[in-house]
Design a protein around this nucleic acid. Sequence first.
DNA 1: GTCTATATACCGATAGAC
DNA 2: GTCTATCGGTATATAGAC
Lengths: 192, 192
Amino acid sequence: MNQTPAGTAERVMDVAEALIQQRGYGGFSFDDVAQAVGIRKPSVHHHFRTKADLVAALARRYTERFESALAAIDVARRDPLARLKAYVQLFATTYAQDGRLCVCGMLGAEADALPADVADAVAGFFQLNLTWLTAAFRDAQRSGQVATGQRAANLAELMLSALEGAMVVGRGGRSGAGPTAVGKNLLASLAA
Amino acid sequence: MNQTPAGTAERVMDVAEALIQQRGYGGFSFDDVAQAVGIRKPSVHHHFRTKADLVAALARRYTERFESALAAIDVARRDPLARLKAYVQLFATTYAQDGRLCVCGMLGAEADALPADVADAVAGFFQLNLTWLTAAFRDAQRSGQVATGQRAANLAELMLSALEGAMVVGRGGRSGAGPTAVGKNLLASLAA
DNA sequence: GTCTATATACCGATAGAC
DNA sequence: GTCTATCGGTATATAGAC
């Protein structure tokens, strides 16, 4: 009647996710994960046959959670600009955890070295974000809160790029303020 | 009288640089470099004692070349906005080579997994860029080409973040337009 | 300056007992 | 579901001949 101790696979993904955010796909091993979870390396393989399986599953879970967060913003906020500000906060919260990068930002940088399944999951994350942001900017332009000189899809890519890049610059350059300030400054610059 | 065949160390750095731009610090080995250069692994160690030495030297060379490119822009262009457009082109040229990332953008993402010497070199690159961009935006604001609502230092971080992020999003998301379009759209949005 | 050979460690992954 | 033991491969790095 007792199946999985209700959560080992999830704990494995939790640990692997944090390691990817800190060191990247090539920067962690099954042994790292095993030690942090408190089991042995073959036990990790029992839950995820290969490293590609583990990271692809983790990237899909990350994307699903992000999708839920976006849906929650749509429910909680009706003001278009308030939605965009809440979106920035999503990245800020991640970065506030010891300077952790977005999982798919890190994996996107390493895209050339990733298994196909993982690269596909990363592409799905970016597509999800661009679609949501495009709609949000379109609404913000219609409500007169964002200038209409640029196409909404272009503003979406600009926003996503700025936030992903702000994490990289903030971490690599040490002095960078991170996604909170960059997102805030971008929205201020785009105001109608 | 014959010293180094005048260039093996440089060829090693050339190859390692391209591999980092494609796969990251953890994604290439001395053997990869040796094969691409056409020598054996211990010969690479003869020129650079450790991997950290190689990558730190390579990152410093990259920063020096970037510094020269910035100086060349200052000489060739007097118009502040034209200088910013030329800056965008620096990133666009890199990305146009098979979607190569900025060396320090890639290394910045991996910062937590980097030897101290390498991380220091990466931080120097970002600092150089932020300093130059801050001066360029300050001049563009004074000439009336860029809106004055934001501090020049904040616009500098926004621009650098957007360009670094555009490479990550463009590569990871496949559909992304890359730094050329993102930089152009940002400058258009910031116009006075 | 380049080579062969090697030391040592770690990697992802599997076999099979409990 | 977790374990011990291990395979085969590759990593960084060094010793010493040419």
